[in-house]
Design a protein around this nucleic acid. Structure first.
Lengths: 261, 261
DNA sequence: GTCAGCGGTATCGTATTATAATACCTTGAC
DNA sequence: GTCAAGGTATTATAATACGATACCGCTGAC
């Protein structure tokens, strides 16, 4: 039960590598640069281990080290990882030109999200309006149930899977209006089943309305979603349905057509 | 002299971790999914090592494994690395809203690049027009000397550094028009010193014109650049100077003002 | 249908290599 | 000047990573 339990006690598991990865994971939105001791504390490793592993990551170009403060930061190599990821994801290359067209057409922020376990992760973001920094950054993971994209992806799953997900997947609050009542989420997902799209209000940011359409594989199951985000101060849901939804559906469907590779 | 030389023979260097990173680096734009043997070949590790390390990366969620083909691919965690990077880079958060404004204003593709050794790396891309996929992806590394951003950053360095860079930094050809003549690059950089901006034609893509302004730190040295890319088919350099340059300079300067953190 | 070859998986004895305790150094506070 | 805290370096120890090899399952040739 201890935090030190090994994922595998077998010889195909290299503990040192796994520990190095724990150091990398110690960095997040609120821990952007870490001293050796902080690194040790956050990764749960002792000082010696943190020292050796951090030093290795530094020599290998994965961590910058400030010569004066002695603190570590993610290096540009972390962006290089995203670069490699993009080439490996067949959806992105196919979607990108269509997302650009869509954003030009509607003049509002367009995102693409993929399901990653019980979260969604933004793989592409085309911000058109000033917004919070977090809303412009690639790689953000959010609880699927709290996002229009996650809900609309889920809506393409068979009923039992939907029920299990709405029951078990995690939720957390981002705004005073984030829905934490699972029965409300059931409603939203079932509405998405009927509509083929999902609209969510103020789930991640106050006064933000998000609308998402699923990107389906040939079997009809969604892998991902295209989503537009607009301000509730300038848009009514009615107008979103009239002016954004059709183009959004076209875009999502165009990505559907040529499914994999 | 062999490829197997250890970066450090000391006890602060954990070889297993470094080898794991070599596996990660085996993935790039033309190697998007790799079998175990390919992984071994590309990383220079033997089959057993590749097996153990790849398995570890898989268990740790860094590599997806296709159940049928047995091939490995980068996981969503690779995007998560970019996410963490963004929060750690003080320039990005500060620049993002201004870049969005700029792209809205000029209606053309806007990028931000940072110097990374002798390359530049794109940290932010706001594509407005259909273009090649490679031109939309963050984390792309390009030889600094071949890009308007790299040249304008270099133009803020003291003369000896400029000379050394133009002499030593790498070059490679991306289009039939990529400049490989270093004396021409000297000209371009010195022009940028005088102008405070740099224009480059067809260096990365045919019929692409890029214009870049430096983002300077308080000492006047550039850390990064803001860059716009337009089609030579619709834009003359004259019109770029008249209609894009002023806004580009404003944006770069605005990011300059509040320098670090 | 058999067989060979290839790639992926699992095992195991060995010693290389990672470990963790500790001592040493630097810095900044008081 | 002393002290504490954090970073750096060293070392003896054995735990852990190693890589040779054997096994298994698939595919294509004949």
């Amino acid at each position: 039960m201890g935090r030190t339990e090994k994922p595998k006690q077998n010889t195909l598991y290299v503990g040192s590598l796994a520990k190095g990865l724990r150091l990398l994971r110690a960095f997040d939105e609120s821990h952007t640069e870490l001293s050796l001791s902080e690194l040790a504390a956050r990764s749960g490793l002792d000082k010696s281990a943190a020292q050796r592993l951090a030093n290795t990551l530094h020599l290998e170009g994965m961590l910058e080290k400030d010569a004066t403060t002695r603190r570590f930061r993610p290096s540009h190599a972390w962006l290089g990882m995203a670069y490699a990821y993009y080439w490996s994801d067949p959806l992105v290359a196919q979607a990108m030109p269509k997302l650009i067209e869509l954003s030009k057409l509607i003049g509002e922020t367009v995102n693409m999200a993929e399901l990653s376990g019980d979260h969604i992760i933004y793989v592409s973001r085309l911000p058109c309006k000033r917004t919070s920094f977090a809303a412009t950054v690639i790689g953000r993971r959010l609880p699927a149930l709290s996002t229009s994209s996650g809900r609309v992806i889920l809506s393409t799953f068979p009923p039992e899977e939907r029920a299990a997900a709405v029951r078990d997947w995690p939720l957390r609050s981002y705004t005073p209006h984030t829905t934490l009542d699972r029965s409300e989420i059931v409603q939203a997902v079932e509405q998405a089943v009927r509509d083929g799209y999902a609209i969510a209000r103020s789930q991640m940011l106050p006064n933000e309305i998000a609308i998402a359409c699923p990107i389906r594989n040939p079997e009809g199951r969604a892998l991902a979603a295209v989503q537009a985000s607009v301000s509730a101060l300038s848009w009514s849901e009615e107008r979103i349905r009239a002016e954004i939804l059709p183009a959004l559906q076209d875009t999502a469907h165009a990505i559907t057509a040529k499914p994999q590779r």
